[in-house]
Simulated scan of single mutants.
Amino acid sequence: MAITGADSLMLANSPHGDLPMVRRLEAVGFRAWPAASVVYDGSWQVRLTGGHPSKRLNCVVPLDPSDYHDADIRLEKARKKFAHYGRQLVIRETPLSPRPLIDRLDEAGWVCIETVSVMTADLAAIDFSETLAHLPTHDIGRFIDASLAVHGADPAIKPAMAEIVSAIKPTTGLFLMENPGEGPAAVTICVQDNDLAGIQDLAVAEERRGQGLGTEILAAALRWARISGARVAWLQVGETNKAAIALYQRFGFREAYQYHYWRKDETA
């Protein structure tokens, strides 16, 4: 039997990730959470979004392990571009990043400020028999208001969030749980990109945690993705978010690879 791209995602065992698998997950990740401005310096993707503070939307992502030439000059060029947006330069290190570049950052006083796990799960192996079905909403404004409320985020980023969600090109399901008069309780976004489905922005309101809502809304999104034709689900979660990781592991998610954010230590 031929091995599909989705099958290869499930077969990768390297702790650093299988590079073709990493490239594919990085590509779908960019499409699932698009930055407002994306330019390339060689194979380095420079991502900037003026109205939203997310590091995923405001970072430089080197995408070729051999592309390290003129690194100091390119870093300074990127620093100036980020400064124009009022942001400090952030480098996102994946298994595709040149090792000499990361060593250079370390030697120059940069620090790793966050580690994120990219996880995948086989949708065919998930049992949805005891979970409830929820249909996604098509009301982007209503969903964004709910997302901001659940996250406790600054309402000022609403226009940027609307731009991001509206710019997602693959088929997208916006999932929202709320009770009349009680406000939004949980949200998530599921982006189906051919046979892959990405879970984004999953959150439960602080006062509603511990009631199974995370399980319910994640199951609803994954069920929708499987019915829509996806075979493998993926997501990204900070390594310190133990509660979320435990939830994802119950659905069969396992780590495919990690990535790291680096920033210059301005106090050094």
Rank of each mutant, 00 (worst) to 15 (best):
A6I: 00
L9D: 13
M10N: 04
A12E: 10
N13E: 12
N13H: 13
N13V: 10
H16E: 12
H16P: 03
H16V: 06
P20Y: 09
M21G: 07
M21F: 06
L25T: 04
F30P: 06
R31A: 14
P34T: 04
A36D: 14
A36M: 10
V38E: 14
Y40I: 07
Q45T: 11
Q45Y: 09
R47Y: 14
T49Y: 15
G51M: 05
S54Q: 12
L57H: 05
P62Q: 04
P65T: 07
D67P: 03
A71V: 09
D72G: 14
I73Q: 15
E76Y: 01
K77W: 09
F82E: 03
H84Q: 10
G86V: 03
R87C: 01
Q88L: 12
Q88W: 10
R92P: 02
T94N: 05
T94S: 15
S97P: 00
P98T: 05
R99A: 13
R99G: 01
G109P: 07
G109L: 10
G109H: 12
V111H: 15
V118P: 02
T120W: 09
T120A: 12
A121S: 11
D122W: 14
L123N: 07
L123D: 04
A124V: 10
I126C: 11
D127W: 07
F128W: 15
L132N: 07
A133M: 13
P136N: 09
H138S: 14
H138M: 08
D139V: 06
D139R: 08
I144S: 14
D145I: 03
D145R: 02
A146R: 08
V150S: 02
V150Q: 05
A153K: 04
P155A: 02
P155Q: 04
A156W: 00
I157Y: 00
P159L: 08
E163N: 14
I164A: 11
V165W: 15
A167E: 07
I168L: 08
T172D: 07
T172I: 12
L174Y: 01
L176K: 05
N179C: 06
G181I: 05
G183E: 11
A186Q: 00
V187H: 06
I189R: 15
N194M: 15
I199E: 02
Q200G: 06
D201L: 14
L202F: 15
A205E: 03
A205C: 04
E206K: 14
R208T: 09
Q211N: 15
G214M: 08
G214F: 03
I217F: 12
W224C: 11
R226M: 10
A233S: 14
L235E: 01
Q236C: 12
V237A: 01
V237D: 03
N241H: 04
Y248G: 08
R250V: 02
G252A: 12
W262S: 00
R263G: 00
K264I: 12
K264W: 06
A268N: 13
